[in-house]
Design a binder for these strands. Structure first.
Lengths: 167, 167
DNA sequence: CTAAACTTTCAATACTTTTTGAAAGTATCC
DNA sequence: GGATACTTTCAAAAAGTATTGAAAGTTTAG
């Protein structure tokens, strides 16, 4: 397989994976591009490589900065901004986990804690609801704890544990 | 908080969580409704409760059946079909993990294995690409293994390990 | 200060996904 | 068989999301 072909396939594939991690397609592609690039790239170059508009590039670069998975590089003497991505995939996964926890898990935990106070009127429906809320809350809290552990973990430490699990 | 209010909030919240798990909003809401319902419901009842059309209800019920997270119930003497959901949340999570693994992780693993054969032409770009592919492949394979372990796990067993990790 | 080099915004547009509802299909009953 | 009670399909409409590009904004240099 040729280099450019491989690069395009990878950007495409990583784009899909990123999408399933909760980024959008362009975000994930920009990220992939920065991943495979040995030097940091300017907005202009990103637009070019991915054939996207300035606005689109700008918005998604900002979103990536916001997620904390790429960073701005200022090159002395240059006015343009350059960007590079986090290249350690575990660090990236931890960062994504952190953001998703904030965006997705926290809101549902809040609702579950509220709904937990529902007064049962003794009906089957209310009893079932109470049971489900209890289970969900328990699940969500445990997931939250696990995520937190993962987010704070050192790669090597995490690895050792995972290997132990999978043995 | 009142029962109906709590129920609606929960369906809403679960709808959002399900969405972030890769189900669509209606799918997740139907699932939530079945979760909190002490008895199985017919298509008609689901349409009613969620104010959705017959077509929509039908399509999403089929998708949920397809994911294997709800099941069809036939009540003797009745012609209608009823549906009930898996109520064990861990079993549900395992099922979702299984489907997503098939739909998302497997395709990227396939691409990574292909791209892995790229011939380096000695350029920095090609070297970087090779490095990234190697890392990603490693990561994806390890995630795949971990997911597999989770999917096949018994709840209690998994729990013990998780608790150990989090201690 | 003005021009140049950039970055950001945003209304319009294009694209994707979801939802609707009526029509077609299927199974069961008498 | 025909009527009834359902389920499924699917083209059209609506809703949601992403993308464009030109205009406005900002920063730096001279």
């Amino acid at each position: 397989m040729k280099y450019t072909e491989a690069k395009e396939e990878l950007i495409q594939a990583w784009g899909n994976l990123g999408y399933s991690w909760g980024l959008n397609k362009t975000m994930a592609q920009i990220h992939a591009l920065l991943m495979v690039s040995p030097r940091s790239l300017s907005t202009e170059e990103i637009m070019q490589e991915l054939s996207i508009s300035r606005g689109n590039a700008n918005m998604n670069i900002r979103a990536l900065l916001d997620w904390g998975i790429i960073s701005r590089i200022l090159i002395p003497g240059e006015r343009k901004e350059y960007f590079k991505s986090e290249k350690d995939i575990w660090a990236l996964a931890r960062q994504v986990a952190k953001e998703r926890r904030k965006r997705e898990l926290e809101p549902i935990l809040k609702v579950l804690r509220e709904v937990n106070d529902v007064q049962s009127d003794g009906s089957d429906e209310a009893k079932e609801l109470k049971r489900v809320v209890k289970d969900l809350k328990n699940f969500a809290e445990k997931s939250d704890g696990l995520l937190e552990t993962f987010i704070k973990s050192e790669e090597s430490w995490f690895w050792n544990v995972v290997l132990k699990i999978m043995k």
